[in-house]
């Protein structure tokens, strides 16, 4: 019994011992490239070509010409649209220069210009355009995690500039880039924790048992996927929802795992090991939902991969631990 308790304590320490995330410059540069590409997707939709990689460069370079905001009113104002009229974004004389400025700013961000300066235009344009779209009567959450990350990166960038001006060190002696990545991770995980709280609150604690009806939503989402492009590929495995309805415990177990994963997602902020654990778990959950319900969650998956799983960091660690050729490992 004591041995089991001690093993659990060691495991708990292993995953929850708080350690600052140190990022080499190359990793911070890589994160900047990933963030810039994701933000640019909101203007070009290049991610839709992930299954046709040869078309990606063309989509990245050319699709922004076709992008056009058409909303000339905001009948159901949401967020900042409650106080500000964002319909000026539908004016091509404003929209097109803003999109060009976004492209230039993202390029500067990739080149290392401080986030407080280089992310200002992409953040404003991204959040304003999505706020306008969300003020038409249908609230969409596709880009929410991305824009929350963008906001977090920008706020951290401003805060780090302020600390530099005041000659104050950043928490954990982070560099500006490490501090920005830390706030981005905190922002991403806040979304998951809040989502879990909402599940518990709105279902009055019965989310797990109500998950037995999830197969009806699988049918709904697959049918809606069909009516999006009339693609027959959207309606496959029609037997699966029926089988899941007949065995409700499957749903409760499979989707029930998502609830603690989201509720305790903040533990993924503790160290690289916990980050990888929660990152892989949440990507796995999103992928299950993608396969079953045709909901993409592509921004969430890539953000989790970049900021939490970070496979490149583990590979780099592994290479660093390898002895150089011709050098014998030290004997104990």
């Amino acid at each position: 019994m004591n041995a089991a308790l001690s093993a659990f304590q060691r495991l708990w320490q292993f995953f929850t011992h708080c350690e600052p995330f140190r990022h080499a410059r190359w990793e911070l540069s890589l994160l900047r490239v990933i963030v810039a590409l994701l933000v640019w997707d909101t203007q070009t939709g290049w991610v839709a070509h992930l299954d046709q990689p040869l078309q990606i460069p063309r989509a990245i370079l050319e699709n922004s010409q076709k992008a056009d905001i058409r909303y000339e009113s905001q009948p159901h104002p949401n967020g900042l649209a409650t106080w500000f009229d964002f319909t000026f974004l539908a004016n091509d004389h404003i929209e097109k220069p803003l999109r060009t400025a976004t492209a230039v700013s993202l390029a500067l961000y990739v080149l290392g210009v401080p986030a407080a300066l280089s992310l200002l235009v992409p953040m404003f344009f991204g959040i304003a355009a999505s706020t306008l779209a969300n003020s038409q009567g249908a609230i969409g959450h596709t880009s929410q995690a991305l824009h929350l990350t963008l906001l977090s990166l920008w706020l951290a960038g401003v805060w780090s500039l302020w600390c530099r001006w005041k000659k104050k060190p950043l928490p954990q002696n982070y560099s500006a880039g490490e501090f920005e990545a830390s706030w981005a991770r905190q922002g991403i995980m806040a979304g998951y924790v809040v989502s879990a709280i909402s599940k518990l609150f709105f279902s009055e604690g019965s989310w797990l048992t109500s998950a037995r009806y999830l197969p009806l939503h699988i049918v709904k989402n697959r049918d809606m996927e069909f009516y999006d492009k009339l693609s027959p590929n959207a309606v496959t495995d029609e037997w699966l929802p029926q089988l899941m309805m007949e065995h409700p415990l499957w749903c409760i177990v499979i989707f029930g795992l998502a609830l603690p994963l989201e509720l305790f997602a903040f533990l993924g902020l503790c160290n690289r090991r916990a980050a990888a654990l929660f990152g892989i778990g949440l990507i796995g959950f999103h992928e299950t939902v993608t396969q079953l319900m045709s909901l993409s969650f592509i921004f969430n998956k890539i953000l989790l991969l970049a900021f939490f799983v970070a496979p490149w960091w583990w590979i780099a660690q592994w290479f660093q631990k390898q002895p150089a050729p011709g050098v014998k490992p030290a004997s104990r």
């Binding site: 949401n78 900042l80 959040i127 959450h141 809040v194 989502s195 609150f201 279902s203 998950a211 037995r212």
Partner: peptide, 29 residues
């Protein structure tokens, strides 16, 4: 008291799929 409580882009309390009713629907054209 607004039409969509909890929604203030880019902030949200992510209410979707927080409850599952024994009946759902969709529309098409």
């Amino acid at each position: 008291k607004t039409e969509k409580p909890g929604e203030f882009y880019p902030f949200s309390n992510f209410p979707m799929y927080s409850t599952f009713e024994p009946e759902t629907y969709y529309v098409y054209v």
